[in-house]
Design a protein around this nucleic acid. Structure first.
Lengths: 122, 122
DNA sequence: CTGTATCCTGAGGGATACTG
DNA sequence: CAGTATCCCTCAGGATACAG
């Protein structure tokens, strides 16, 4: 029983290029959120993480595995399947990530304004 | 009325090299926490941020200023003084930062074990 | 005191092609 | 399907020297 992935979820939830908050490398935070609903296959992760190349996704996943946040499982039969799932430690990061995303959503306009050079009325 | 800075506060509070959580560049999160107690001068920031060079600290501060998180003020008299202070937006980041630091403190041992290759008893 | 200027290194990240 | 191999480029970050 695995929740479906909304392809666009990160466009509004994880604007990592704009906010000063990052979890690991560029994709780590999004990967963790992708895995919130249950295990995902390599190719399933590539869909919502638009633009990520296989090499970079692999590297990010290996790093997450090393850090104990994600577990990789290979199923041989009937065909090759590789699944990635959150460990308890990885799952414990969902809270802080959501806090960061909530902050970004809440202050989105101010961030845009600051970047554009709008002087804040203090 | 400005709270004193504990020189070692970041050794235990912001282990940014170990945790996957980063706020902006390497020093941004620590700078923001440094400014929590009130405005600080450039040279005052260099003390707790051990190891940061003037160039890098300047660049981090400029970035924080651009993003509307920090305000820079120059006092000419009696001698040159430059002070950095949190904007309301910057102050609003203190919550998420503390959440991240709390996560890191809580899962410190697991992070170490994972890096050392200790197999987690699941 | 508060920076700038210059040089250097390593890591992150993307493009492309290839593999079991 | 799930990666690897190779090449390349940018940027973060540190060392050092210098400046208003």
């Amino acid at each position: 029983m695995v929740a479906p992935l909304a392809p666009d979820m990160f466009d509004e939830l994880c604007p990592s290029d704009l906010t000063p908050i990052r979890f690991g490398d560029k994709w780590a935070g999004m990967i963790i959120r992708c895995l919130e609903g249950g295990p995902r296959r390599f190719s399933e992760l590539r869909v919502p993480l638009r633009g990520v190349t296989a090499k970079v996704l692999t590297r990010s996943l290996r790093k997450l595995e090393q850090d104990g946040l994600v577990r990789r499982t290979v199923h041989a039969a009937p065909t090759r399947r590789v699944e990635y799932a959150l460990t308890p430690l990885g799952r414990s990061l969902l809270g802080p990530i959501e806090v960061a995303c909530a902050w970004a959503r809440e202050h989105w306009d101010e961030l845009i304004d600051a970047r554009e050079g709008v002087v804040a009325a203090d």
